[in-house]
Structure formats: C-alpha cells, structure tokens
Amino acid sequence: MTKFFKTFLTAGAAICLAGIAQAADIKADIKGMAFSPATITVSVGDTITFTNRDGAPHTATAADGSFTTATLRKGKSETIAFDSAGTFAFFCKIHRGMKGTIVVQ
C-alpha cells in the first residue's frame, strides 16, 4: 500500500468519524427545593439524568406533558432522552414552585 493511499484512508476515516456525534448524558441535581442547573441546554440525542439530593420526593415533569420522571426519593435518579429540538419548561409535580427550562438544539 502506498504512503499516499494510507494517508487518504486515514483522512477519510477521520472525516467519517467526525460526523458521528456522541450523545452526552447531562447531570442535573434536585437540591434545596430547586433544579440545578435551572436551565439545561443539550443537543438532540442527549439525555439528562435527574438525581434527587433533597430529603423530600420530587419529579421533573414537562409542562407540555412530553416527559416526566417517577417520584424520586432522596438519592434516586432517572434519565430522560431528548430526540427532538425545542424548549421545554418543566416543574416538580409535588412542589409546583420548582421550575426549570430545557433547551434542546
């Protein structure tokens, strides 16, 4: 195999792999009766793992009903996947004053 052909194959593989995006798992805590961070920006295909750090139970529930976690007790987590772009307001069904926003790009 010639040096040119090896270089061509390596460059082609790099270009192909650059187009494959890895999904990220973003961590979000529920603590102090608030979501942290309150605004979360992710890419389409990413997930957010909500973990309850409070003594009280909480949920993370979309205002439009597109997602909700189970009731999370202290130390419990749940992961939500986002497969379409948009801005999603969310809240805790138990403590409705707890609010946040997810921006999916």
Rank of each mutant, 00 (worst) to 15 (best):
Q22M: 10
L72K: 15
F8C: 15
A14C: 12
G32Q: 11
G97F: 14
H95F: 06
F35T: 08
K27N: 15
T41K: 03
L72C: 13
K27S: 14
G65E: 11
A70L: 06
D29T: 12
A70S: 10
D54C: 05
Q105R: 15
S77K: 14
I80M: 13
A56H: 00
V103R: 07
A24H: 02
T69H: 01
T51G: 10
T7A: 14
T51C: 10
I30G: 15
F5E: 14
G65C: 12
S84P: 13
C16W: 03
A28W: 00
M98K: 03
K99S: 14
P37M: 01
F90L: 12
T68V: 05
C16G: 09
T41A: 05
T79D: 07
F50K: 02
I48L: 02
D54I: 01
V103E: 11
N52V: 03
G32W: 08
L72T: 13
K99P: 00
M33T: 00
K76V: 07
I26M: 10
K99V: 06
P37K: 07
G75T: 09
M98L: 13
I40L: 02
I102K: 02
D29V: 01
K3M: 03
A34Y: 04
A13F: 13
D25H: 04
I15N: 07
K27I: 15
A81H: 13
A89P: 07
I80Y: 05
T10A: 14
S77T: 15
D54P: 03
A34L: 10
P57R: 09
T39D: 14
F5Q: 02
T68A: 14
I15Q: 04
T71V: 15
G55D: 10
F4L: 07
I26F: 04
D64K: 06
K6W: 00
G55T: 07
I94W: 09
I20W: 06
A23N: 05
G12L: 14
S43K: 11
H58T: 12
V104T: 05
G75M: 05
L72F: 03
T10Y: 07
K99W: 01
A89Y: 03
G45V: 13
S36A: 01
A11R: 11
K74V: 09
I20K: 01
A70V: 09
A81F: 13
A24V: 04
F82S: 10
V103A: 05
H58V: 05
K99A: 11
K93H: 07
D29K: 06
D29H: 11
T2A: 09
I15T: 12
I15M: 13
A62K: 02
A14Q: 02
A85H: 12
G65W: 10
F35E: 06
I30K: 01
A24Y: 07
T10R: 00
D64N: 15
H58P: 05
T41Q: 06
H58L: 01
A13P: 00
